[in-house]
Each structure stands twice: as structure tokens, then as C-alpha cells.
């Protein structure tokens, strides 16, 4: 028996909007720790890892570890039917091939349940070791989204370089080139507006912009985003989900042929 009640149901709606274009089908894993997902995109270039910790749910019952295969497009369709203020409860019986999403309006005057078929998915889990990163950049998520959008109108790839001067995002395309430098800026009114750069070593890596633009669909989940970079390692783009966990995107770098 599985029963997860999330008072801030909009979080789950936002999570689905953030991942549904990157991954079609995925297994959601439920354990005492929480509700999680790890899935690669079909080209094996990007990976999404989600964790919503059990403590973040108002009610969390998971009698045994369970993995539920879902089509994320269909799940997003169902969650779109929930109001932004609704409380969302996920329910599944042991051995069942369906999951039920229950939506309750805050005043309890409207209660809806949607039942979705589960699917069998052969998931390929990757073991991601803890790594020491050469540079970690924290910046406003809206600023990062703006940069990715702007650069993708010029080129297809972005070079991210971190030096003592700041973090530079560069692209080039048929019409020309673009460089955007963000300097460390911690003297802002609100901490979430700061750009903070922790650098152990300078690093410069090249990535496909279209994946970054896909990751920025998670922007509504968090005011800030963290980029963890090391030479010749995938970048980690992390959006913290307040009080609950995170959504992390891993993207393999491009290498010169």
C-alpha cells in the first residue's frame, strides 16, 4: 500500500513540467527515504534525478519499496487537471497496475480522482559517485534560463568557463558570436539574487544548449540554480525543491574530435 499526500500539490505539477520533455517513460521509486526518479533521455546524454523526501509529505505511507513505471506525458496531463492550490495524494495498492491521483481543493469542496495505468519499464540506473567539482556556481535560476534562451538564438553549443573573473557563457553560430560574463555578486538585497562562484580550479566545458533549455523548465521550482563543473565530467544542474529535495540534471560534455 502506497499513500503519499502532498499539501503543496503544485510542486508535483512543476516537477512533471520540468521532466516530461526530456524523458518519456520512467520508474518512480518509492521507499522510506522518499519519492524518487532517475532516468536518462533517449540519447543517453542527459539524466534527471529527482528526490522528494518523505518528511516533506503531510502523510507518507510506503509499506514496501515499490517502483512504478509511468509515462510522464500522461502523468503531466493528469496533473494539469489539479488546481495550483490543490492537495495531491498518490495512491497505489500492492501489485496493482494503476496509480490514483486524488486532487482536493483547499476548502475541500471539490475532490477528484484520476486513475492512470502503470507500465513495465526496463530502467537503466547509473551509479553516480560523489565528486569534487572544480567549480560550483550558484545563480538566480531566472538569469540562467535567460542566458540559455538568449544564447540558443545564436548557436547550438555553449562553452561555460569559470575563472577568477567570473563565469562566462559563450556561443558561436552562423550569424556571429556571443559572450555573457556573470561576476560574483553577493552584495544584493536578497540572497537568492546573488551569484556565488566557488572555484578550486579554472574549468571550461562545452555543452549542447538544447538540453540546458530543457533543464530550465525546472525554473519555477527554485529561485536559484547550482552548476557543478569539473573537467571531463558531466555538469550537474541542480534546482533545490524547498523543504523537500531536489531535481538534478546531468549532462555529458562535448569533446573536441
Amino acid at each position: 500500500m502506497l499513500e503519499l499526500r502532498l499539501v503543496q500539490g503544485s510542486l508535483l505539477k512543476k516537477v512533471l513540467e520540468a521532466v516530461k520533455d526530456l524523458v518519456n517513460d520512467a520508474n518512480f521509486d518509492c521507499s522510506a527515504t522518499g519519492f524518487s526518479l532517475q532516468a536518462m533521455d533517449s540519447s543517453h546524454v542527459a539524466l534527471v534525478a529527482l528526490l522528494l523526501r518523505s518528511e516533506g509529505f503531510e502523510h507518507y505511507r510506503c509499506d514496501r519499496n515499490i517502483s512504478m513505471g509511468m509515462n510522464l506525458g500522461n502523468m503531466a496531463k493528469m496533473l494539469k487537471c489539479a488546481g495550483n492550490d490543490d492537495i495531491i495524494t498518490l495512491k497505489a495498492d500492492d501489485g496493482s497496475d494503476v496509480v490514483t491521483f486524488m486532487f482536493e481543493s483547499p476548502t475541500q469542496d471539490k475532490i477528484a480522482d484520476f486513475e492512470m495505468k502503470l507500465m513495465d519499464i526496463d530502467s537503466e540506473h547509473l551509479g553516480i559517485p560523489e565528486a569534487e567539482y572544480h567549480a560550483i556556481v550558484r545563480m538566480p535560476s531566472s538569469e540562467f534560463a535567460r542566458i540559455c534562451k538568449d544564447l540558443s538564438s545564436i548557436g547550438d553549443t555553449v562553452v561555460i568557463s569559470v575563472t577568477k573573473e567570473g563565469v562566462k557563457f559563450s556561443t558561436r553560430g552562423d550569424i556571429g558570436t556571443a559572450n555573457i560574463v556573470c561576476r560574483q555578486n553577493t552584495t544584493v538585497d536578497k540572497p537568492e539574487e546573488a551569484t556565488v562562484i566557488e572555484m578550486n580550479e579554472p574549468v571550461s566545458l562545452t555543452f549542447a544548449l538544447r538540453y540546458f533549455n530543457s533543464f530550465t523548465k525546472a525554473t519555477p521550482l527554485s529561485n536559484t540554480v547550482t552548476l557543478s563543473l569539473s573537467s571531463e565530467l558531466p555538469v550537474v544542474v541542480e534546482y533545490k525543491i524547498a523543504e523537500m529535495g531536489y531535481i538534478r540534471f546531468y549532462l555529458a560534455p562535448k569533446i573536441e574530435d
Binding site: P234, E256, D257
Partner: peptide, 14 residues
């Protein structure tokens, strides 16, 4: 255009 790496080159399957 630089070559695109595969994530599996970095992380082991578990």
C-alpha cells in the same frame, strides 16, 4: 562541431 559524449562513459550502470 565537438563530439557529444555519452553519460555511460562517465557513470557505471548499477
Amino acid at each position: 562541431t565537438p563530439m557529444q559524449n555519452d553519460l555511460e562513459e562517465f557513470y557505471a550502470m548499477v
